[in-house]
């Protein structure tokens, strides 16, 4: 577990540095997804499997897809064709592939069921759910109201001006 933690931490830091120094926006997004997946591995090694799953599904899945949609809508690459060519020919995918391979190796290592790997003293899904709908039920309600407000404001903000006249 120690080794897994430090390897994932290394991957997370490298990927995050690459996020803030990248100029190509899609490359930066790939590094950001890698960083989030590495943090998900860290959550697992810390004995928080529910948080690890949520990190992979919600953060690296849903939120990053939202980013990708907006990048597509903005169509930021005016010279998209040259970018695509550089993407296919260049070395832009080598470092992300290496870092992702490290994470994949960690996943396979955990799945292979080596003795003592099953993260003792986990705080499981049941404990989190029991507390979430017990003492924290008011926070859950507030979070739902926050999401509703975010939904309405995102719809309002992203609407085309003058669209209400139709």
């Amino acid at each position: 577990m120690m080794l897994l933690f430090y390897l994932a931490a290394f991957v997370a830091v490298i990927a995050t540095v690459c996020v803030i120094v990248q100029t190509n926006i899609v490359h930066a997004l790939i590094y950001l997804i890698l960083s989030l997946l590495a943090v998900a591995v860290i959550f697992y090694t810390l004995g928080a499997p529910l948080a690890a799953m949520l990190e992979a599904i919600v953060y690296a899945g849903a939120i990053m897809v939202l980013f990708l949609f907006v990048i597509m809508m903005l169509n930021l690459g005016q010279n998209t064709r040259e970018q695509e060519r550089a993407w296919l020919a260049g070395r832009g995918w080598i470092l992300p592939a290496l870092l992702a391979a490290v994470l994949l190796a960690q996943l396979l290592y955990v799945l292979s069921g080596v003795e003592g790997m099953s993260a003792p003293e986990q705080v499981g899904v049941m404990a989190v759910g029991a507390r979430l709908f017990g003492p924290y039920v008011l926070a859950v309600e507030l979070a739902s109201i926050l999401l509703l407000a975010g939904l309405i404001s995102a719809y309002h903000l992203a609407r085309k001006p003058g669209a209400e006249d139709e």
Binding site: A62, V70, V123, A127, V128, H156
Partner: peptide
């Protein structure tokens, strides 16, 4: 379990924040 509950709340906040932020960017 409280740490993971706080993480879930932060996740909710991040989702709402990114939706509003991306709407503002558009």
């Amino acid at each position: 379990a409280d740490g993971q509950i706080m993480f879930v709340l932060i996740l909710t906040l991040a989702a709402a924040e990114v939706a509003v932020g991306l709407g503002l960017i558009i």
